Amino acid sequence: MKLKQSRNNELEEPRPSRQQILCIGGANLDRKIMIEGTFQLHTSNPGSTRKQSCGGVARNVAENLGRLSQQVSLLTAVGDDAEGEFIVEQSKLYMKLIPLQVQGEASTGIYTALLDERGELIIATAEMEIYDQICPSTILENIPLITLSRLVLLDTNFSKNVIASIIRLCHEQQIPLVVSSVSASKMRRLPRNLNGVGWLVCNQLEAQSYLGIEIVNDQQLLEATRVFHHLGVQNVIVIREADRIFFASQDGSFGHISMHPVQEVIDVTGAHDAFIAGMIYGIIQGYLMEQVCQFGISCVALTIQTDRTVSDTISLTKLHAKFKELYGIEPQRFVFFKGMYFRGKDT
């Protein structure tokens, strides 16, 4: 089959350089259904199915980064089926895709989202059994991919043991690591030892699910981020509802950033992935945490005004233009080195 041949070819190719970003996690097929009128439970709802597209947090982040002219690879699991071939073919334009070896006849993951007329998510289903087939030894076969990366993005689609292995490896090798949640239930797959996690991104519900506490105000949210710091996370970013970003660092700095209202929201699917990609771009370019979040918000603004999970309009030029439009300033660049920021020289 084509996927097996693709895997063989990948093994023969040279490993990525330190300039590359490595995304590890989900790659699946996205199907979106738009409900017409008011959604009603326990009865049939009229709706229309939109065109299927590639999905998965890690895969979507990788494509966004590829569109932002970054060198990026994706380590993921897809089935040896038509859906897997579709994902490989659509993804290779923007990244190097390295499929993990999967035992048996596991099917490619499928995510189905039910949206209202405004493009807001009502409910979603996720058929992701394929990721349960991946074990830590499979990841360890790809250690050079991780250790030679400039930065690693890890989502929470894999098992707790796999996630813990990757976090531990990045910590030991001092590889900058961004961890992105996928859902409240999968947030609980994170280990209790989070040493090595440079940036953790989740929403308020996911933070509550992992920590087992209730967060109802800003003070409780700040206390929650301190718990994450105690567990080893250097920087915590919490998305509050749909309008605010809260960030806190181990050095004691923290703050809120409001999401700018978008005139016409077409589809919010992929907004989280776009935020992560914009944020990673800000990190590797050496921007401070507030500006890192602002780049994420700028990337979201470009995404939710289209009906695509990953907007085909995203580019570096448009990202910087959107940043300036939203914040009215040019971002101040710094150099990020061994966990510290240093002001960059004027050029």
Score class of each variant (00 low, 15 high):
residue 56 G to Q: 00
residue 54 C to A: 12
residue 92 K to H: 11
residue 157 N to D: 13
residue 64 N to A: 02
residue 122 I to L: 15
residue 144 P to C: 10
residue 58 A to P: 03
residue 150 R to A: 10
residue 134 I to F: 10
residue 165 S to V: 04
residue 120 E to W: 06
residue 155 D to I: 04
residue 72 V to M: 10
residue 89 E to F: 08
residue 133 Q to K: 15
residue 127 E to L: 12
residue 153 L to M: 12
residue 57 V to W: 00
residue 114 L to R: 05
residue 84 G to R: 01
residue 147 T to K: 15
residue 55 G to F: 01
residue 71 Q to I: 03
residue 152 V to F: 05
residue 159 S to G: 08
residue 136 P to I: 04
residue 147 T to D: 11
residue 128 M to A: 07
residue 110 I to M: 07
residue 114 L to G: 09
residue 151 L to C: 11
residue 116 D to Q: 02
residue 48 S to R: 14
residue 110 I to R: 04
residue 68 L to S: 02
residue 140 L to N: 10
residue 116 D to T: 12
residue 101 Q to K: 14
residue 172 E to I: 11
residue 131 Y to K: 03
residue 57 V to I: 14
residue 162 V to N: 08
residue 129 E to M: 13
residue 151 L to N: 06
residue 78 V to Y: 05
residue 148 L to V: 00
residue 74 L to V: 01
residue 90 Q to M: 12
residue 110 I to P: 05
residue 157 N to T: 05
residue 70 Q to H: 12
residue 82 A to V: 14
residue 117 E to D: 15
residue 102 V to G: 00
residue 140 L to T: 11
residue 165 S to W: 03
residue 168 R to P: 02
residue 161 N to T: 13
residue 90 Q to K: 15
residue 84 G to M: 04
residue 109 G to S: 12
residue 156 T to P: 00
residue 151 L to I: 14
residue 44 S to G: 06
residue 108 T to L: 07
residue 81 D to V: 05
residue 54 C to N: 09
residue 103 Q to M: 09
residue 92 K to S: 15
